[in-house]
Design a protein around this nucleic acid. Structure first.
Lengths: 196, 196
DNA sequence: AGGCAATATTAACACTGTTAATATTATGAA
DNA sequence: TTCATAATATTAACAGTGTTAATATTGCCT
């Protein structure tokens, strides 16, 4: 690890390989030998650039977040500020994980190697949905439409509800059909995103 | 598997062993050899009574649900029907999984061997919190305090919110402190369990 | 071209779940 | 009781996992 540019390039090869596997076959297909083969290197080479496989896969999360955010922006452009925009953006957020269940597993199911290590990555994941709608929450605050306590409460409500729905649907096959999932989602978002 | 009584007794040995490990060291410590040793048998013997290790661990869920329900009933006895009773019972439900994080992992994180197989067990897990508060929801319906649509919506809101909070706290160390977790929980339950 | 440092690969270890072959135990008939 | 057979338990083995140490290969500079 003398040449920093070459080192980062090598890391990127492994990260791209891991991303493809996670996107396609999911977290179950992730293994040191699998990722290395996809990257075109031997399995032990991976350890010259990452301390372990968990560290590697969690580095993928920043790229996935970017990609997800791009989809959300596409799906919500030209929309006026307000609850409806949050609703659309949140549904787009959820759609991304429905498309790539392996990425949901990585974000919320998989547990990191060490609890303390790479805490920033986990923090970014935890606050992801909050950041997706940050513009809107700020708008509500500035226009005095909602006060800060209410905003924090609704932000949390949305966060837990959305991840809960995805957890049940993707990890527990509940509800059984996609249509039921869509209906529950719409109902729940409507409950959270309204003035009481 | 000639004598059904002896067979069930053997299964119970393995189930009890698995339960102790899940309660104590968590799902990470579950392995065929580990469970078998705790049960006092060789690892291959397990396969005479269970098709695989996943089937075995998911059989533990019925016992855990019973135990959890007993705690909830203890914590909520002598309470009048109403939102407060749901709140207390739901907090007790959550407390159980905070006490035994391994059981939360088993219930909501771990995925079964086959999707179709043992669907009833998964269904019982999915509906567990609903059943915990079924008495109260029925009471609200009978007394015309809430209509059926509202009840179903609130039931779902509670379900997703509660599991979401536990997922973040137990699997993502968010929030960092137990006190913050308690405050968020109380706030969220108050939001869901009120008349709009 | 030779030597040294950087990097990549193979071999090995301790695990995992699962199955097949073997050893042990229990049961019933002579 | 003895022996054969069925039932059950155990060991050996296989293919997989993550990770580390020893070895092979590459690239660079004198």
């Amino acid at each position: 690890m003398q040449n920093k540019i070459q080192e980062q390039r090598m890391r990127e090869y492994f990260i791209q390989a891991a991303k493809e596997i996670i996107r396609g076959e999911g977290m179950r297909a992730i293994s040191v030998r699998n990722v290395a083969e996809q990257a075109g290197y031997s399995y032990a080479t991976l350890y010259n650039y990452f301390t372990n496989i968990k560290d590697l896969v969690f580095e993928c999360t920043v790229d996935f977040q970017e990609e997800c955010l791009e989809q959300i922006d596409r799906d919500s452009k030209n929309l006026d500020m307000g609850f409806d925009r949050i609703k659309i953006r949140t549904k787009s957020f959820m759609k991304y994980f429905i498309q790539y269940p392996g990425i949901f597993t990585l974000f919320y199911i998989e547990n990191p190697s060490t609890i303390a290590k790479k805490h920033s990555t986990i923090d970014l994941i935890n606050s992801f949905l909050d950041r997706v709608n940050q513009q809107e929450w700020d708008y509500f605050l500035e226009t005095h439409y909602l006060n800060e306590a209410i905003i924090e409460s609704k932000k949390a409500q949305l966060r837990y509800n959305v991840i809960g729905i995805l957890l049940f649907y993707l990890n527990r096959q509940f509800p059984k059909t996609y249509n039921d999932y869509l209906q529950i989602t719409d109902n729940q978002l409507s409950m959270v995103l309204k003035i009481d």
